[in-house]
């Protein structure tokens, strides 16, 4: 492999690029740009880089740990200036440069910006009928991952039945999210298998509208859930959740494949909170003169042929800032965005 120093255009050495958001897309974009010879500043609003992966235990397919992904980036982050607890307040455009001002009033002059601000997890309390925050047994996909990370899942009493509700806050016009969050189907099936690994006698039920197991290895995950773990799949959206006098959750749905109403008592119900827009998008879009779509995610003028390009020449996107994406897709887009920055700047 050619070392970065042999491979560079020396002109790049003094060009600065800002990467906004320290999730997996931001970390990959920063590291690719650093390898191409740019001086990179990574701005992260949270306490540490890593984004949502910090709160996730394992990733499908293959069950690698999220922490190993983050550690891989952080152990190779030399040469990248990482500013945590920092946001962007404003940006000034001049001919070929942008000067951004951070929340700590630092001025950073850069030749390009990659926006990797990702998504927010849907707030499941909004779907009141599912009883999140009301009933102890109702948790979210993120809560379950936290229980896996901390190991606290093993302190819980063995549930006899666990349910998984797909599409919570996704494909739901009532909560202004018409889009599919793309990753929840696999997450639900992965988590159902993980529950069966911990408690083989526990019965698991996935309530889905459609199963969108679209990627390589995903259908195998579904096959394994049925074949190896005996996970039950019920096509029908959960309509309401209640609690009986014994503290069991009473779940109602239609079993649409038999066209019959269905009732089941469960000990634990896991809601697949979907990916929604980052609430900062609107303000950032105004600062950087980009546009956002009806769904609140950043919009690309040419999403098919130039998925990382924005309506501003020096502003690029990567990862789920432009809509729900998996980790692998975010990594790919980050590399693509870094290359787009390089193609722009190396010709100047």
């Amino acid at each position: 492999m050619v070392s970065p120093s042999e491979n560079l255009n020396l002109n790049n050495m003094y060009k600065n690029v800002l990467v906004l958001g320290g999730g997996v897309a931001g970390l990959q974009a920063a590291s690719s740009l650093r390898d191409l010879g740019y001086r990179v500043t990574l701005v992260e609003k949270g306490e540490k880089p890593g984004g949502h992966l910090n709160n996730w235990d394992r990733l499908y397919p293959g069950n690698i740990t999220s922490s190993s992904v983050i550690d891989g980036y952080l152990s190779n982050s030399q040469g990248i200036r990482i500013l945590t607890n920092t946001t962007i307040k404003s940006a000034l455009k001049s001919d070929k440069l942008l000067t951004v001002i951070t929340s700590s009033s630092e001025e950073i002059t850069v030749s390009a910006v990659i926006i990797t601000t990702g998504f927010s997890l849907f707030d499941a309390t909004i779907k009141e009928e599912y009883g999140y925050g009301l009933y102890n047994g109702v948790i979210t996909n993120a809560d379950l991952e936290s229980l896996f990370i901390s190991g606290k899942i093993h302190n819980r009493e063995k549930p006899s039945r666990v349910g998984f509700v797909h599409c919570v806050g996704s494909r739901d016009d009532k909560v202004c999210n018409r889009h599919c969050s793309k990753i929840c189907c696999m997450t639900a099936v992965k988590q159902a298998c993980e529950i069966k690994e911990i408690w083989p006698e526990t019965e698991a039920f996935c309530f889905y509208m459609d199963l969108r197991m679209f990627g390589r290895g995903y259908e195998d995950l579904y096959y394994e859930a049925q074949n190896k773990y005996g996970v039950n799949f019920i096509r029908g959206r959960v309509s309401e959740v209640g609690e009986d006098e014994n503290g069991k959750l009473v779940v109602k749905a239609e079993d649409t494949l038999t066209s019959r109403p269905l009732k089941i008592s469960l000990d634990m119900l896991v809601l697949m909170s979907g990916m929604v827009k980052n609430p900062d998008n609107k303000a950032l879009s105004a600062i950087f003169e980009t546009s956002i779509g009806e769904d609140g995610f950043f919009a690309q003028p040419h999403p098919i042929v130039n998925p990382t390009g924005s309506s501003s020449t020096r502003i690029f996107f990567a990862g789920s800032a432009t809509g729900p994406k998996s980790v692998a897709e975010s990594v790919n887009e980050a590399k693509s965005a870094a290359l787009s920055v390089h193609m722009l700047l190396s010709n100047e």
Binding site: R260, L262, K263, I264, S265
Partner: peptide, 10 residues
């Protein structure tokens, strides 16, 4: 009395 058509998984 009509018989229930519901699937009661309990």
């Amino acid at each position: 009395l009509s018989q229930s058509n519901r699937i009661d998984l309990d």
